[in-house]
């Protein structure tokens, strides 16, 4: 066998190994993103379970916010039944976050409610879930960022285009989330 053939074979071999490793890491990143999204889903379901609890606890006190409760209950129904795209799910949950945030803010006007044990417990539980939800979102965003970077940078984008890896959208921080961070600092 002559030398040039060996060199060509070696180069092809290296190229193959590189392609495989890039492909595998892309699959790995995509699965991490999927997994992270599934985690968000788990947290969202926990939050759905909390909504009736929240509505029942505050309903008696907050007579003026009746419409908000109805809308929240309706959104929850939709969210539970929804088996469509991730984007629609994200959108629906952003609305839910908004409404829940509004309710928690309006509570300020009802001192009796604010002091009740039931509500205090609920407030803690909601804060807990929101914190876990935020952690899942951040995990998802990190995984997606890594995937996106890999699908867009040279030379791994060649492999990504070849096997049709697409960039995924990031979660934007919701209005309530942004507000909460400001308060915490």
């Amino acid at each position: 066998m002559n030398t040039s053939l060996i060199i060509i074979l070696a180069a092809l071999g290296i190229l193959l190994i590189w392609t495989l490793s890039v492909y595998n890491s892309l699959v790995n990143l995509r699965n991490m993103a999927k997994n992270a999204f599934a985690n968000i889903d788990v947290m969202l379901k926990k939050r759905y379970d909390l909504i009736p609890n929240l509505v029942n606890t505050v309903k008696g006190y907050m007579k003026h916010e009746k419409e908000t409760f109805e809308q929240l209950t309706k959104l929850r129904q939709q969210a539970i039944q929804l088996e469509t795209s991730d984007d629609a799910k994200v959108d629906l949950n952003n609305q839910i976050s908004e409404l829940m945030g509004n309710i928690m803010v309006s509570v300020e006007a009802y001192p009796d409610l604010k002091a009740s044990d039931n509500f205090l417990h609920l407030q803690r539980t909601i804060a807990e879930i929101e914190e876990q939800l935020s952690a899942s979102r951040r995990s998802y965003n990190m995984a997606v960022t890594e995937l996106n970077t890999k699908t867009e940078t040279i030379p791994s984008n060649l492999i990504a285009n070849l096997f049709k890896f697409k960039r995924k959208p990031l979660f934007q921080a919701t209005a309530t989330e942004r507000k909460r961070v400001e308060v915490e600092i």
């Binding site: 914190e131 876990q132 935020s134 952690a135 899942s136 995990s139 961070v181 915490e184 600092i185």
Partner: peptide, 15 residues
């Protein structure tokens, strides 16, 4: 667990 890590290390706590 990377999600737990983020649950503990909120952006405010990291700062």
């Amino acid at each position: 667990d990377d999600i737990k890590a983020r649950y503990i290390l909120s952006p405010a706590l990291m700062q």
